[in-house]
Design a protein around this nucleic acid. Structure first.
Length: 597
RNA sequence: GCCCUCGUAGUUCAAUGGAUAGAACAGCACACUCCUAACGUGCUAAUGUAGGUUCGAUUCCUACCGAGGGCACCA
């Protein structure tokens, strides 16, 4: 296996560096910049020559001949070159063997053991139950699920969890908006008690032919508007929160109803995306639990009570963060207070080694504070906790500026709608090609739309702010998931046509040309996955798949694969290997392959 | 004021401190009797500014400019 050959090279280089009295050498074996520099290269000579007072190129020469003499199986040529790189060329036997390895390992190819035996809890998405999921939530969800899949692919046991902030003023606004604006007759009183006895006098989402989460969003917008424009209504809404806290029966009924709509809607979108939570936390179940941790902190002496009754913690000296309040002066808890309770709950429930939060950049400070406080309380170490942040999703306007989405201006783009639009263009294409509209083409269009949308978000670095362009999102050409999928479909189509084949002995053009390029690209998939795991970002995989597809298509254009020649067997094996890697890569992105399109 | 993230072709995005900064879209020029043209080939075009560290900087450091976010009782 390529992996083993590389590991052997690393070991030998390390030994050699040690023998040259380099202290704890760090051997970086990287992909060579271009085929003229071989397949892999090492920069150790340049890194360490100066410290030893050596000439880098001579140092590299010695390293190269040392390795050449080791005659590592599978390693063809080793050469040292200009500034001091040592370049490696694998033997053609090894490269051909790699194709067969890929086929043999199949769907498991690319997975590794980097986090074998570890237990991770990954919290992500956590949509507000007062709003339908928009493209910002979509991005978090895709990033979060990407991390879940990466960790699983590297051997960890992963719990994917989400949190519903299901109490407080925003939910009360939804409740009020519903009561005041979803009644079938405007004469009906806006009153919880009346509602509880005459529920059928209010519209359901189905009666208004709305998706339930969109319905809830609408109620929220109404509630928010009334709340901020009318003091009486503001009081009523605030009272709803108080009533809810004192377990007022009718208020709870209303609360449950609007949340049920919200959850139904959100979960429909998540199902559509193929996303999944193993565990959902509901704020109302643990929000009061935080106070006991505050007591504990006071007893331990890590928290301090101020004169007005608020409790603070000092984070400046030890953590370099701004000090913060952990309990309000009226004795009620803050978001931070609840998060402490939830973090401990997560650690205890799952015995988690590591916890990840995929949460927006605006919460960076809050997250750091939470981690520090948890350490102060002995819940866990700061190093056990990771906040995965990401860039915002803005909208690109016609003038080329990037604007924030705003529900007030009606510029929020919902996740559902984007997928539907892309699906629409795909269906139009089917119709134009005379493929007709039936259930199987609808199903295919759905899968392809998801491919395009998911890939579009996942191909970028997660920290990059996105300027979302509606027109471009619908464009299914170029650097897109559909390009990759099309390449996959080509591989399957060829294999179908070929039927059973034997790989044969001939490797036709493995030293130069398009076939060599393709063969070379196949060598890097495993290390791309490793890099993705290390950086918790699947975008490297997406970028790699674009490159692999491009090389496959270039080869395909030049070469007739089913030419009946001696080389056909190996070419088919190559096609199969490319198909396997595309499929495995897309699966890590959460994209299901199709066999025809 | 302080802290964090970001700044790459006209546009949208790539590039573990490495070799000639890669794609795609748009534009221009090709290519279709052949395994799916949702494809392929070629051309034009970019590292915000000024310093520093380094054999070597888009990447690290400093200052400035620009965009976004945050800074104790909001979530």
């Amino acid at each position: 296996m390529i992996r083993d050959i590389l590991q052997q090279i690393r070991n030998e280089v390390e030994n050699w560096l040690l023998s040259q009295s380099v202290v704890s050498p760090d051997v970086v074996l990287e992909r060579a910049a271009s085929p003229e520099f071989g397949e892999f290269s090492i920069n150790s000579a340049m890194r360490y020559a100066k410290k030893l007072g050596r000439n880098p190129l001579e140092f590299a020469d010695e390293l190269a001949s040392f390795l050449q003499d080791k005659a590592i199986d599978g390693l063809g040529r080793v050469e040292s070159v200009k500034p001091g790189f040592v370049n490696f060329y694998l033997s053609s036997v090894a490269k051909r063997q790699h194709v067969e390895d890929i086929i043999e390992v199949g769907s498991a190819f690319g997975s590794n053991k980097l986090h074998q035996g570890e237990k991770w809890v990954v919290e992500h998405t956590s949509p507000n139950p007062n709003k339908a999921m928009h493209i910002g939530h979509l991005r978090i969800n895709l990033i979060g699920m990407g991390i879940v899949r990466l960790m699983k692919a590297s051997g960890a046991e992963v719990v994917s969890d989400g949190l519903y902030n299901d109490r407080g003023i925003s939910i009360a606004k939804v409740m009020y908006g519903y009561l005041a604006h979803s009644k079938k007759d405007s004469e009906i009183p806006t009153d919880v008690t009346y509602w509880s006895k005459h529920k059928d006098q209010w519209f359901t989402p189905a009666e208004k032919e709305m998706k339930p989460d969109h319905f809830v969003s609408e109620c929220y917008v109404w509630g928010e508007k009334d709340f901020s424009s009318d003091h009486e209504i503001e009081k009523t809404v605030r009272k709803m929160v108080v009533d809810w806290e004192s377990n007022h029966e009718e208020t709870w009924q209303l609360w449950k109803l609007v949340l049920q709509y919200a959850y139904e809607g959100n979960e429909r979108v998540l199902r559509r995306l193929g996303s999944h939570w193993d565990k959902i936390w509901y704020e109302h179940e643990h929000y009061q639990g935080g106070k006991q941790y505050v007591e504990e902190g006071l007893n331990k002496g890590v928290f301090k009570r101020l004169e007005d009754g608020a409790v603070i913690t000092k984070l400046e000296d030890k953590y370099g963060l701004t000090d913060t309040v952990v309990l309000k002066n009226d004795g009620t808890s803050l978001y931070l207070t609840q998060d402490i309770a939830l973090t401990d709950l997560k650690k205890k429930t799952y015995g988690a080694d590591k916890l990840i939060w995929v949460v927006g950049p605006e919460q960076t400070l809050h997250m750091k504070q939470l981690f520090s406080v948890c350490e102060q309380l002995g819940i866990g170490k700061v190093s056990d906790f990771t906040h995965v942040s990401y860039g915002n999703v803005g909208l690109k306007s016609a003038e080329g500026r990037v604007a924030k989405m705003s529900s007030r201006d009606g510029t929020v783009i919902l996740a559902d709608n984007v997928i539907d639009e892309v699906k629409g263009t795909i269906i139009n294409r089917f119709l134009k090609e005379g493929r007709g509209e039936n259930s199987s083409s609808g199903d295919l269009a759905e899968k392809l739309a998801l491919t395009a949308v998911k890939f579009g978000f996942l191909k970028m670095d997660k920290m990059q702010n996105i300027a979302f362009d509606v027109e471009q999102s619908v464009d299914v050409h170029g650097d897109s998931g559909l390009y990759v999928m099309y390449s996959y479909v080509r591989t399957q189509s060829i294999l179908r046509k070929a039927g059973a084949y034997g790989a044969g002995q001939t490797a036709a053009n493995s030293e130069s040309g398009a076939e060599a390029q393709l063969l070379r690209s196949l060598l890097y998939y495993e290390s791309v996955v490793v890099k993705s795991v290390e950086e918790l970002s699947v975008h490297h995989i997406a970028q790699y798949l674009l490159e692999l597809s491009s090389e496959f298509n270039a080869w395909y254009a030049k070469e007739t694969i089913l030419d009946g020649s001696e080389a056909q067997g190996f070419k088919l094996a190559l096609v199969e290997a490319v198909g396997i890697i595309i499929q495995n890569g897309l699966n890590l992105l959460g994209i299901e392959t199709v066999d025809e399109m």
